[in-house]
């Protein structure tokens, strides 16, 4: 499927700069114009450059920009854009309060890729199959986009515009990702179907439910690799919210989520398989999330 390019070397020639502050990043972005690209972990961009699909004149590395690093709790959790996928997979607070995100990060490609790849990179690459996107959608995440003009906060749902397309303007940098505060009675789960463990998703789904007694009082269902962008299943969420879940209702919600997908057929799976598998994994994720929220076994 790949055109026979030489992946032994990088054929393209380019400049490389390594700013240490956001102010320097903005300066380089305006200096080098649209021919410049930001690079974080490089696990997507360098592959695309080796394949000669992208040919930037200048790479602006974000690796040493302190303002993009770290993780802070502040009515929720704010994760710096260059946090590695592995650091999220191993984070104790993420494992406890944002379980679906921890599961997605642990299912992410291979260990060295997890070490190198960053959360911001996974989002800005905007693959419809990005593993971190569905759990972040389930946690009502927003992204902080900064430029010289200041900062704007965009809900993640509005950030993805299409495959490889985001709301990020050329003069902007994705600074951090904010996850909504975890609430009492919440439970979440991520389920991924892939050809082999290290491959990207054929489909993946993340679910968060909030339980009060025997009722679902809030619910998020998000899917990856079933549409041009990662998507929420709004109709299925509405169907389940306020309900007392049983196996039949969860099946129905999963069926609605599956019906609302718009998958394509590609080398990894057919449209039919993706739609069917969506339904199955949404059902499984809902069931697991409900139990994690402390809900009773579904009858």
């Amino acid at each position: 499927m790949y055109i026979a390019t030489n992946t032994h070397i990088l054929v393209a020639e380019f400049d490389y700069v390594e700013p240490t502050t956001l102010e320097e990043v903005f300066w380089h972005l305006s200096e080098h114009g649209p021919q410049a690209r930001l690079i974080a972990g490089g696990t997507d961009l360098l592959v695309q450059m080796k394949m000669e699909r992208k040919n930037p004149a200048c790479l602006i590395s974000l690796a040493r920009v302190l303002e993009l690093q770290g993780m802070t709790s502040n009515s929720g959790l704010t994760v710096g854009a260059t946090a590695s996928i592995r650091s999220l997979a191993r984070s104790e607070p993420i494992g406890r309060h944002y379980t679906a995100l921890a599961e997605a990060c642990n299912a992410f490609s291979t260990i060295p890729i997890m070490v190198m790849a960053t959360l911001g990179g996974n989002l800005c690459n905007a693959s419809p199959a990005a593993d971190t996107a569905p759990p972040l959608l389930a946690f009502d995440a927003s992204v902080a986009l900064v430029s010289r003009a200041g900062q704007r906060v965009v809900p993640l749902e509005d950030f993805f515009l299409g495959p490889g397309q985001t709301a990020l303007r050329h003069d902007e940098v994705l600074r951090s990702v904010h996850l909504a505060e975890s609430v009492r009675g919440a439970g979440s789960a991520f389920v991924k179907v892939a050809r082999v463990a290290a491959d990207i998703s054929q489909v993946c789904a993340a679910v968060r439910v909030v339980r009060d007694g025997d009722h679902v009082i809030d619910c998020r269902i998000a899917l990856g690799a079933v549409a041009p962008t990662p998507v929420r299943a709004h109709r299925a969420e509405a169907f389940l919210t306020g309900q007392r879940p049983d196996r039949g209702r969860v099946d129905d919600a999963a069926r609605i989520a599956g019906e609302d997908t718009k998958p394509i057929t590609d080398v990894r799976a057919t449209q039919e398989y993706r739609r069917h598998a969506s339904r199955v994994i949404v059902r499984d994720a809902l069931t697991t999330a409900w139990l994690r929220a402390g809900g009773r076994e579904l009858k």
Binding site: M51, S61, P112
Partner: peptide, 27 residues
């Protein structure tokens, strides 16, 4: 493979396993 799929080029950088085929030397 040169594209991060086989693990043959794994080295440790500051103690962490990384793929040297996807790391720029300048970095």
């Amino acid at each position: 493979c040169g594209i991060g799929e086989c693990g043959g080029c794994t080295v440790h950088i500051d103690g962490q396993p990384m793929l040297s085929c996807l790391v720029l030397a300048v970095a």
